[in-house]
Amino acid sequence: MSMLIMSAGRPINKHQLLDVISAFLHGRKPNTTSYSVCIECKRRGNVCVMVAHGIPCMGPVTHAGCNALCPTYNRGCYGPKETPNTASLSNWFKRLGVNEVDLVRYFRSYYGNSEHFYKESKVHMKKRD
């Protein structure tokens, strides 16, 4: 259960929580999306904060469900998703001028111990030191 809730990215919203509980009670698979926050962000018609304003955004490696809350408020998102392409995102962040120390920080906040985020943060730990 807890894995499932974790994997939904960010703090999950109340509809996701209700769905997970109801799925659990009915013995069915929870109805969670598999795509990233970017899809929700596009659907909301937001201007991409990364492309348009150069603000690092974790949306591409974050599970949808929040309805792209942070980008809607003109800020970048903060993590995570299953099988995310973290290495590619790190490269994009570097191009925006994010240094190794800050990359470690991006991958080590609320979900710093999730497998992909942890691995990615270690890569940048090494480069930092």
Binding site: P11, L69, C70, T72, Y73, N74, R75
Partner: peptide, 15 residues
């Protein structure tokens, strides 16, 4: 942005 743990506050003002 949301009722618990809002996301719009930043040092210097708001996003």
């Amino acid at each position: 942005g949301r009722e618990i743990h809002p996301i719009n506050v930043r040092v210097g003002g708001f996003y």
